[in-house]
Design a protein around this nucleic acid. Structure first.
Length: 503
RNA sequence: GGUCCGUUCGUCUAGGGGUUAGGACAUAUCCCUUUCACGGAUAAAACACGGGUUCGAUUCCCGUACGGACUACCA
């Protein structure tokens, strides 16, 4: 057993939580619970321009639906409140000033426009601009200016940012739990902005400061953060702190073609990439949710867990508790995983079969007589992927058909079948005393036998006559569910509608 | 362009110096079944390429190709 870990899931409230983010949250949750540690939810809302109302609540709701709620953080509280970075604003400033005082960071007065222009110039020359040791002396910052100049600008409330003074030479190395050793030269790292001119910290500063203060031991996040991990290490070093263990997760990729899974893929492929339905507050665009599609939380979790991780055994079905027991960081893959809807559906079917029928019926067939509903659900449980199919299916099932499978009739409808159906129509009622599937079967059998007709020859036509369809669930049980009267009515209607046979 | 990361059946993956390269989804066929589905069985299907190292490489090393992420006062 590992030492208790403290991990965090730190999304930005800029829209609905992506399914890849859900997987990140899941892995964090799993490790925390396996070790008896804490899973913390921190909201990283330092970019006020991208704030989307409702997004934070969406995140909370999603985790709740999946059963992976945080032990600490936004929505639940804890010893390091507040857990919303916008509410911790002042804190970051003081840490940035500490770096400033130690000469590990500096003021920069270059405007966004100035830097854009410089970047464009570099680009047109086919190279890329870096705000780093070789360029910073030529730019407008406290390293290139005199102390007086800087004080002047500051006293006049000139907008400024605080940048990290990245050493010109050196190698940053760290051991990622998934990728092993990663090394990068400091020369390829920019003097990243730590504090923005609006007084908010950037992700990098806020993240490192909070992870340290909140005593985070393991940072498990998406691979998109791998390139900035060395910068974070540098920041830990600048503060004199021990960095946490990093684990950078492989990305979730498009089902077809190349690239990472995006919202567009969902719209195109007709499957969800968000846990819950999301209605965009500005455009009104509706994005599908796993929940609304009919995915069960545990199936969703199981499916997600296996995208990039496996237990090394041949077991594929894992409850959340089993995942907690079995999960380990070192069995996570390095390569990205394509999202496969078929597999997701298969997981759902597996979990659906194990759902108690009673519970299914009470939520999906609330208006039907419960005995009848349970029998119906049992009849269809192996034939559906999502429990919410039950409602529509039951409507179709109990409706007397008006269209009949023509292909089957063209093939099978003949004089013998017509005789058989006539006989059944005439005699079934009196032949079956108690209307249940067994007696119905015996009744049909004996009626046909008396006429010298084989049951197998009649069944499919009988099915079409009664249900309209050439295929479907057990006919005898179906007949029991339809009831005596309805069956006789169906039979009669079919006889009236089927063409007359001659010869 | 630069930096970093990756590459086993169509997909998710197991494995790892000597294997008939295993499983699951999807596909096909068969069995079960009055039909369809479920279930069962079987089949087809993979180590990106080129060099090393080695008696031997899919496995280790180096390149190449391809893919991806990042390259903002976004996270």
């Amino acid at each position: 057993m590992l030492n208790p870990v403290r991990v965090r899931f730190a999304p930005s409230p800029t829209g609905p939580l992506h399914i890849g983010g859900v997987r990140t949250a899941l892995y964090n949750y799993l490790l925390a619970h396996q070790t008896g540690g804490q899973f913390i939810l921190r909201i990283e809302d330092t970019d006020q321009t991208r704030f989307v109302p409702g997004a934070e609540n969406y995140i909370l709701e999603s985790l709740k639906w999946l059963g992976i709620s945080p032990d600490e953080g936004v929505g639940v509280g804890g010893p390091h409140e507040p857990y919303r970075q916008s509410e911790r604003k002042g804190l970051y400033k003081s840490y940035a000033e500490r770096l400033l005082a130690d000469g590990k960071a500096y003021y920069a007065f270059d405007t966004a426009e100035e830097l854009d222009a410089i970047r464009k110039t570099y680009e047109s020359k086919g190279s890329a601009f870096q705000y780093n040791a070789v360029n910073r002396t030529k730019l407008r910052n406290s390293l290139a200016m005199s102390t007086k100049e800087v004080e002047d600008l500051l006293s006049k409330d000139t907008p400024y940012v605080i940048r990290l003074k990245v050493p010109a030479k050196g190698e940053i190395r760290f051991q990622d739990s998934i990728r092993d050793w990663v090394h990068v030269h400091t020369s390829s790292i920019d003097d990243k902005v730590l504090m923005k001119s609006d007084g908010m910290p950037t992700y990098h500063l806020a993240n490192v400061v909070d992870d340290h203060i909140m005593e985070i031991t393991h940072v498990i996040r998406g691979e998109e953060w791998l390139p900035s991990a060395p910068l974070h290490i540098l920041l830990y070093q600048a503060f004199g702190w021990t960095p946490p263990t990093f684990a950078h997760l492989p990305l979730l990729l498009k089902p077809e073609g190349n690239g990472k899974l995006s919202k567009r893929d969902a719209d195109l492929g007709g499957f969800p990439v968000f846990p819950l339905e999301w209605i965009d507050p500005t455009t009104g665009h509706i994005s599908k949710g796993f929940r609304e599609e009919g995915y069960l939380p545990e199936a969703t979790l199981n499916f997600l867990a296996f995208l990039g991780w496996n237990p090394g055994t041949e077991q594929e079905l894992f409850s959340l508790d089993e995942l907690v027991q079995t999960f380990s960081l070192d069995r996570i893959n390095k390569a990205g995983a394509k999202f496969d809807v078929n597999k997701a559906k298969w997981f759902n079917e597996q979990y659906l079969k194990n759902q108690p029928i009673k519970a299914l019926v009470s939520t999906y067939l609330p208006n039907m007589d419960s005995t009848k509903a349970e029998a119906f659900a049992s009849l269809y449980i192996d034939r559906i992927t999502f429990p919410n199919q039950l409602g529509k299916l039951s409507e179709e099932f109990f409706e007397i058909p008006s269209v009949y499978d023509e292909a089957v009739l063209a093939n099978k409808w003949n004089q013998e079948n017509q005789n058989a159906l006539n006989l059944l129509s005439k005699n079934l009622n009196s032949k079956v005393e108690n209307w249940n599937s067994d007696e119905i079967k015996h009744g049909i059998h004996s009626i046909l036998e008396d006429a010298g007709i084989k049951m197998g020859k009649v069944m499919q036509v009988l099915r079409v006559a009664l249900s309209g369809n050439g295929a479907g669930p057990d006919l005898m049980i179906s007949m029991e569910l339809w009831g005596r009267e309805s069956v006789l009515k169906r039979l009669q209607k079919a006889l009236e509608n089927f063409p007359e046979c001659h010869g």
